[in-house]
Amino acid sequence: METVGTDRDDLLSELLQPLRLTGVFDSRWHVRAPWAIEGDAEQSCAVLHYIVEGGCWITGEGRTPVELRAGDLIVFPTGTAHRLADRPDRQGVPLKAVLPERKPGTSGEIVIDGSGPESRLLCAGLHYDASAATGLYTSLPWALVLDGPQVDREPLLRDTLRLLASPDRPVGPGDRLITLRAFEMALVLALRPLLRELADNPTSLPMLRHPGISRALVVIATRFAEPWTIDSLSREVGMSRSAFTAAFRDLVGESPARHLTSRRMQEAARLLAETSLPQSAVPARVGYQSAVGFHLAFRKWFGVTPGEYRAGVDHAA
């Protein structure tokens, strides 16, 4: 039991590694009932809504409506389309009709004057590098909710959200980068208690309850630099190759080979972007014995060479 708990915590720690956010569009909503807004599906984008005052209903196609009140936070890890409204049955206007431009790095505002109760929301689209989104991440539920008391138990999350929602949020040099990092931190802080809760619910993330697949995910997440093959991975977790491959694809949504490559590429991108490690040292650090093999794999994954990737990051900075 202790080993299972340790493996679970290791895996959740890996999930909490922030996706590389490439930009944020955030908006403040000041709305009075009646109101309803239809949000589109967002590609490579997590979406969050923080209820500052009042409340709203969240609905999605084929989903049970969710009521949110002041202090609650909802996160859509993969940007699933949904509606926000003062009532769950109210039809809305498209988000693009009230916010036609939602360019990352900018902010917006929605004001709807009605005669009913007032609500204020902080909403944000957190654009991330799609190549870092593994099958494990994309298998998360369509929406994750932290109610007010849960948010209050995470004071850093609560204070960060309140600062970001403030109408007089400080602005100045570096504001765009600070905002990006603040939302990145908010996303990680929000996912931490939510993922622990999911891990205790066997119907939410079934791969965490499968001893072989759970163990394989931890191995890939933490020991990706070792020279794994599908045969050695299956032996490591005590399964036959065929059973391991089938169960992994069924529970995680992608093959073990692709999941391993994804983890290696994610770490390679981090090393190139965030460290001064020589480029020639990167392949061995992420499990490639051949520099040529790493170069080809990286280019296939990201569409650019490792050198071009590092140069692009340096230029953006």
Results as ranks from 00 to 15, higher is better:
111 V>T: 15
118 E>N: 07
202 P>G: 08
250 D>I: 05
182 A>F: 02
316 A>G: 04
144 L>T: 00
81 A>H: 03
81 A>L: 05
292 V>N: 11
132 A>N: 12
82 H>G: 00
255 S>C: 09
280 S>W: 04
135 G>F: 05
313 V>Y: 00
282 V>D: 01
16 L>F: 00
217 L>T: 07
80 T>V: 14
16 L>T: 08
278 P>M: 06
311 A>E: 13
34 P>V: 05
301 W>G: 01
88 P>I: 03
103 K>M: 15
76 F>P: 00
242 S>L: 13
84 L>P: 00
305 T>D: 04
232 S>K: 11
259 H>Q: 13
307 G>H: 09
157 L>G: 00
199 A>L: 06
249 R>N: 12
90 R>D: 11
153 R>H: 13
26 D>S: 10
256 P>I: 07
77 P>A: 11
260 L>H: 09
193 P>I: 05
219 V>Y: 01
90 R>V: 10
60 G>D: 07
273 A>R: 07
12 L>H: 01
196 R>P: 03
296 L>V: 13
2 E>M: 06
145 V>G: 02
296 L>Q: 14
116 G>W: 06
65 P>L: 09
51 I>Y: 02
226 E>Y: 14
271 L>N: 04
13 S>P: 01
265 M>G: 01
21 L>T: 05
71 G>W: 03
266 Q>L: 10
41 A>S: 07
209 R>Q: 12
120 R>K: 15
166 S>K: 04
317 A>F: 06
79 G>L: 02
70 A>F: 09
